[in-house]
């Protein structure tokens, strides 16, 4: 599985959850690795790229979550 594809899947998952449920990093790792049949480390790696690029951000609201950054 190409890393880009994993990144797209992660972004789509986070986007779909907006307004419904805040996702934790471990939720994303579990869901995507099960869905794509890849290791959690691969998901973690792709997530790291998305965070480093600022495409997704960490937020804290009584726990740490991964979210889409607010539009400026």
């Amino acid at each position: 599985m190409e890393k880009e594809e994993v990144k797209q899947k992660i972004y789509a998952l986070v986007e779909k959850s907006v307004g419904r449920k805040k996702l934790k990093s471990s939720d994303i790792q579990k869901t995507i690795s099960a869905e794509l049949g890849i290791s959690r480390d691969e998901v973690k790696n792709a997530l790291k790229d998305l965070i480093d690029a600022g495409t997704l951000i960490y937020t804290y609201f009584g726990g740490s979550f991964v979210e889409i950054p607010p539009k400026q």
Partner: peptide, 14 residues
């Protein structure tokens, strides 16, 4: 809480 932080990091800034 909220969304403050530095890029790439999920902690260290409250």
């Amino acid at each position: 809480g909220g969304i403050v932080g530095v890029r790439g990091y999920g902690g260290g800034v409250i």
